[in-house]
Amino acid sequence: MAFRLSNNLIGILNFVTFLLSVPILGAGIWLGHRADGTECERYLSAPVIAFGVFLLAVSLAGLVGACCRVTWLLWVYLLAMFVLIVAVFCVTVFAFAVTNRGAGEAVSGRGYKEYRLGDYSNWLQKRVESTKNWNRIRSCLQDSKVCKSMQEKRETFADFMRSDLSPIESGCCKPPTSCQFTYESGTNWTKTPTSSVDPDCSTWSNEALCYNCQSCKAGVVATFKRDWKRVAVVNIVFLVFIIIVYSVGCCAFRNNRRDNAYRGGWKGGYA
């Protein structure tokens, strides 16, 4: 019996994902074994490798199951796809739930916003306030040199006030506005006596910047929130796509069972 359309379609889709899994897996291995790699890159390599292996295994199961009519492999493929659908759905709902609170606070006469950790969800606060997690995040921030562009700029205070800083630049690379320190450059400020009760005022230093400040943690959380919302929107599109693929896979699975039953009946008739 000729291949059915659903089997061909599943075979083509899984061949494409199989090809995609190879560079993903290679990138994860490369990140983990770079001689000059940062701790952040090495930490990122584990989930990239895991995703590459998962994609490779599922693609092979779907490809062989659909094209070679191996019913049990196609069943494994459909089970993995169902688990993926549930996982993506849960992650998307969770992402919207933990990012529904918090926003940058506009500062009078400034082009940038400032961020307070207490404005965000308790779950996100606990993640960045964990000493182990924050040490890793801070190391990543320092390795990526997020404040380098501000260190290299030579601009007046008026120009600096009009700057459109990212949440991390605002929270980690400069002291809070309430400290009222004297501006020298983007990352160089002269400490002056202040009536502010913000603990970040005493934490700030021109050498360590504000990487240990609450405002820096808030800037990281604000960045997470922005990125997670984007990922959640992409996840919705991806979820619709994999549900369609799963439905086609169910048709291919049904075709395999019909063909196997047909062959069994045909052979039985001539036994």
Rank of each mutant, 00 (worst) to 15 (best):
residue 236 I to N: 05
residue 200 D to Q: 09
residue 231 V to D: 02
residue 158 A to Q: 15
residue 157 F to A: 04
residue 31 L to M: 15
residue 211 Y to L: 08
residue 20 L to C: 15
residue 240 V to Q: 08
residue 47 P to M: 09
residue 233 V to S: 09
residue 39 E to V: 08
residue 107 V to T: 09
residue 59 S to L: 13
residue 34 R to E: 10
residue 163 S to F: 08
residue 108 S to F: 00
residue 116 R to H: 13
residue 211 Y to G: 08
residue 260 N to T: 01
residue 98 V to F: 03
residue 165 L to T: 02
residue 270 Y to N: 07
residue 1 M to K: 04
residue 101 R to A: 12
residue 216 C to V: 00
residue 77 Y to I: 01
residue 24 I to F: 07
residue 207 E to K: 15
residue 28 G to L: 01
residue 75 W to V: 13
residue 157 F to L: 12
residue 31 L to I: 07
residue 120 Y to W: 09
residue 88 V to Y: 05
residue 30 W to V: 07
residue 233 V to P: 05
residue 133 N to D: 06
residue 123 W to H: 10
residue 25 L to R: 01
residue 197 V to R: 12
residue 15 F to L: 15
residue 38 T to A: 09
residue 58 V to C: 12
residue 253 F to L: 14
residue 229 K to P: 11
residue 194 T to S: 15
residue 8 N to F: 12
residue 241 F to V: 11
residue 237 V to S: 08
residue 13 L to I: 15
residue 239 L to Q: 08
residue 22 V to L: 14
residue 218 A to N: 05
residue 185 S to M: 03
residue 134 W to M: 11
residue 32 G to E: 07
residue 26 G to P: 06
residue 176 P to E: 08
residue 59 S to A: 15
residue 36 D to N: 13
residue 196 S to K: 00
residue 104 G to L: 13
residue 185 S to I: 03
residue 180 Q to M: 13
residue 139 S to W: 01
residue 143 D to F: 03
residue 223 T to A: 10
residue 143 D to A: 14
residue 51 F to Q: 11
residue 48 V to N: 02
residue 65 G to D: 00
residue 162 R to P: 04
residue 177 T to D: 10
residue 49 I to A: 10
residue 13 L to Y: 06
residue 53 V to S: 09
residue 244 I to K: 01
residue 145 K to W: 02
residue 35 A to G: 10
residue 249 G to I: 00
residue 36 D to G: 09
residue 47 P to H: 02
residue 134 W to L: 07
residue 250 C to F: 06
residue 4 R to E: 10
residue 265 G to Y: 01
residue 123 W to N: 13
residue 234 V to N: 03
residue 212 N to E: 12
residue 173 C to V: 03
residue 142 Q to Y: 05
residue 179 C to H: 11
residue 115 Y to M: 07
residue 196 S to L: 04
residue 154 R to I: 04
residue 177 T to R: 11
residue 150 M to L: 15
residue 124 L to V: 03
residue 38 T to E: 01
residue 176 P to G: 07
residue 218 A to W: 06
residue 23 P to R: 04
residue 249 G to Y: 08
residue 256 N to I: 01
residue 160 F to K: 03
residue 119 D to Q: 08
residue 218 A to M: 07
residue 36 D to S: 12
residue 252 A to F: 01
residue 264 G to N: 14
residue 148 K to R: 14
residue 142 Q to G: 04
residue 254 R to V: 05
residue 19 L to N: 05
residue 83 V to Q: 04
residue 115 Y to C: 12
residue 76 V to D: 10
residue 137 I to W: 06
residue 260 N to Y: 00
residue 238 F to A: 14
residue 222 A to T: 05
residue 143 D to H: 09
residue 172 C to L: 00
residue 133 N to S: 14
residue 126 K to C: 06
residue 223 T to F: 11
